[in-house]
Amino acid sequence: MTAPIEINVNNGPVTIGGLAVRGVASSSALLIGDTESFTLYSYFDTPPESVIIGPLVPLPELPEEEEE
C-alpha cells in the first residue's frame, strides 16, 4: 500500500483592494477566510412536461411517493 501524499501549505499575508459582486446564487459561496470543505448542491428542473398548454385548470394531484 502506498503512503498518503503529504501536502504542506504555508499561507502568506493576502491583501485585496476591493470586491464588487453582482450575485451569489443557487448554492454558491463567497468566502473570505478559511474553511474545511464546501458541499454545495443545486437542482433546477424545467423538463418539457413542465410546460402545460391547455385550459386553465389547477395542477393535477400527482401521486405522492414514499421518501427514499
Binding site: A29, L30, T35
Partner: peptide, 20 residues
C-alpha cells in the same frame, strides 16, 4: 498572516448561498 480586504459590495445572496 492576515487576510485584508478593502470594500466589499454584493448585490444579492440567495437560494442557499453563503457569504462569510
Amino acid at each position: 498572516s492576515p487576510i485584508r480586504v478593502g470594500n466589499v459590495c454584493v448585490l444579492g445572496i440567495s437560494t442557499s448561498s453563503v457569504l462569510r
